[in-house]
Design a protein around this nucleic acid. Structure first.
Ligand SMILES: NC(=O)c1ccc[n+]([C@@H]2O[C@H](COP(=O)([O-])OP(=O)(O)OC[C@H]3O[C@@H](n4cnc5c(N)ncnc54)[C@H](O)[C@@H]3O)[C@@H](O)[C@H]2O)c1
Ligand SMILES: NC(=O)c1ccc[n+]([C@@H]2O[C@H](COP(=O)([O-])OP(=O)(O)OC[C@H]3O[C@@H](n4cnc5c(N)ncnc54)[C@H](O)[C@@H]3O)[C@@H](O)[C@H]2O)c1
Lengths: 208, 208
DNA sequence: GTTACTTTGTGAAATCATTCACAAGCACCC
DNA sequence: GGGTGCTTGTGAATGATTTCACAAAGTAAC
């Protein structure tokens, strides 16, 4: 299939969230315009985004909420549960481990690792923090696909290399340092300090 | 000035980080190519990004690390300290409150608010969690410019409205719900579940 | 001062993403 | 069953961003 822009995938993910809300409210169908207004985009954008994957609507009527949400789940790979490990059980790692939003979406935390003896042994939402030395062996048996990396910046790249060597498929990095991974591994970063700097820029250039 | 793309601002922020590392290593000058390789972009991109704001380099030599980093700080509005409040002292809010990376960049946490009596009174990194009912009065006296919103999704919009009414300039939203603000307020969202879904998509479509 | 070499700054070209605009399809009603 | 109204799906147009490519400007060496 043709390459899909990241912005499109991000919006699909948003559409799915709105569809689930609509589903909860008992609505059967939804138009591209309704979907658009929720997500702050346009109806043409919604239709274009969906058109990359097929034709899911009925002209004159809109989309079946149920059908479209299950198609989107399929497209996004949310049909199956994903196994996730957290590396670094510090403040942000602990918050992530206890975040219910991940589990609800089918992301199951199957392992948490740290070096600090103070953290090792702690149970976070039913998962016990283990020594980072056990990480490779666990990954070999668990076959986790995704890692959340929440360790200090200095050790982020070495740990990334270990995760890659252990066969991880994707990494979500929270450390404020850019990481390098081979092309078969998907990497994304959440950089909160950078988000604040973008806000700072906007505040300073408000009327420019 | 012409409108600057968000992607450009994001990269400027990254360049600044690399420049600071270079500075720490005692380097005097840096070329667009070196800056690019750190940030995973191209030298032409670096030069184009900078060219929107002026000519900061010397042909044949590159950029003065010191000059460029102070120019970038100025452009990004990092010359002054920013006053930040955190709304919601739960797991993620507490992690944010204790994160050193913000303070290092000039973002000073001047207030933390919650409803839960269990949280109110707690000191997080020297700042005491206060009752959310005090928020408006505090904002009027503190003049904080930025709010970090880390409350449950259900109350995110009402709290946003209160922050906007109290004169906040920018909001960084961590709740997984889209928020609406008037045009003079800058809003950005960090949506971690959505980031994971993008990874999920990538894993499923690896060889597509 | 001249030559050889490096790197910037920037129009022009290419690529990528969004918006427009409308024919085609379907529901509903009489 | 034909007409009316609504909404999709999609090429074409527009707009935005990135990449190219090169003249201009600087350094350094002799
Ligand atoms: N706290 C925040 O709000 C926040 C915000 C943005 C970014 N971050 C980034 O997230 C990362 C973690 O931040 P934090 O605030 O949770 O810090 P933290 O110090 O609370 O947690 C880091 C954890 O990593 C563990 N660790 C260190 N080396 C390790 C190793 N080799 N293997 C396994 N675990 C190891 C530490 O023992 C510690 O528990 C940092 O890179 C930080 O820049 C944090
Ligand atoms: N924990 C995570 O890793 C994580 C990840 C992504 C997104 N989020 C989002 O961040 C938000 C907070 O998550 P959390 O895990 O910290 O939850 P949490 O329940 O630990 O924290 C929420 C806090 O908000 C407070 N609160 C509720 N109503 C309030 C009000 N009206 N005024 C002030 N404070 C109020 C609660 O008392 C609580 O302390 C949620 O929207 C969640 O979806 C969390």
């Amino acid at each position: 299939m043709k390459h899909i822009a990241e912005s499109t995938v991000r919006r699909l993910s948003l559409y799915l969230r709105f569809l689930e809300e609509f589903e909860a409210h008992g609505h059967q169908t939804i138009s591209s315009g309704e979907l658009a207004s929720q997500g702050g985009t346009t109806s043409a954008q919604v239709r274009k985004d969906l058109s990359f994957f097929g034709s899911f609507g009925k002209r004159g009527l809109g989309y079946s909420v149920n059908d479209l949400s299950s198609r989107l789940r399929e497209i996004l790979g949310l049909g199956r549960p994903w196994k996730v490990v957290i590396v670094g059980a510090g403040k942000i790692g602990a918050a992530l481990a206890q975040y219910r939003g991940f589990r609800e979406r089918g992301f199951r935390i199957v392992g948490i690792y740290d070096v600090d003896p103070q953290s090792i042994g702690l149970a976070l939402d039913g998962v016990t923090v283990r020594d980072q030395r056990d990480m490779e062996a666990d990954l070999a048996s668990l076959h986790a696909e995704i890692a959340l990396l929440s360790v200090p910046a200095e050790v982020a790249q070495p740990l990334t290399d270990r995760l890659v060597a252990a066969g991880i498929g994707a990494i979500l990095n929270f450390a404020s340092t850019p990481l390098h991974v081979p092309p078969h591994v998907t990497l994304r970063s959440v950089n909160m300090a950078l988000e604040l700097e973008i806000l700072s820029y906007a505040l300073v250039n408000r009327d420019a």
